[in-house]
Amino acid sequence: MTSSFKWTLTRIVLTSLYLFAGWMLFTGSTNLQTMATGAAFSLLIALTTFKLFIDDDEAARRTLIPRLHWLVVYLFLLVYKVYLSSFQTALAVLRNDYNPRVVHFRTRLNSDIARSVVAGSITLTPGTITLELTDDHLVVHWLQSTTTHSRFAGNIIKGSMEAILKKVWI
């Protein structure tokens, strides 16, 4: 059994586990026939899509399995930040007073999934939209900018989110 075959097998198993978890969440029944159908289709879909779901070169364990307790902390932080900045954005919209700038900064996260999660979180937070993400370089449109300095802007926009995401994934 070569190492590439083992890696392929791991990817198929992980993909079908994720799919099966989704199936269980939405059917919500422990009927044996339903579960068997779900498992069979999870495996079938995993066989065709595992190359897209888990990249060939993402072999570090913590990029595949997030540390769930930190992920929960992260979700609460995200909801808090969304509400905080949406009140600021609502105030800016009602006063019709904008100061938008495009800022560039880098992220210290290494895995692809953590980088795309931080880019998605920046877009989800009102007042900031990720325009581009190439490797570790982010281009962000910022509605109420206070600085254009790369490091300070990065700290304000992604500071605490990046610190927790570094604990969830690498």
């Binding site: 949406s86 919209v93 938008p100 009102p126 007042g127």
Partner: peptide, 25 residues
């Protein structure tokens, strides 16, 4: 608020910001 921003904002990106605020929150 998001729809007010969509109508009043000065350019494309600020309109998008306002409408994404509306949708998200």
């Amino acid at each position: 608020t998001g729809h007010i921003g969509l109508l009043r904002a000065p350019d494309f990106f600020t309109r998008l910001q306002a409408s994404s605020t509306c949708s998200t929150t």
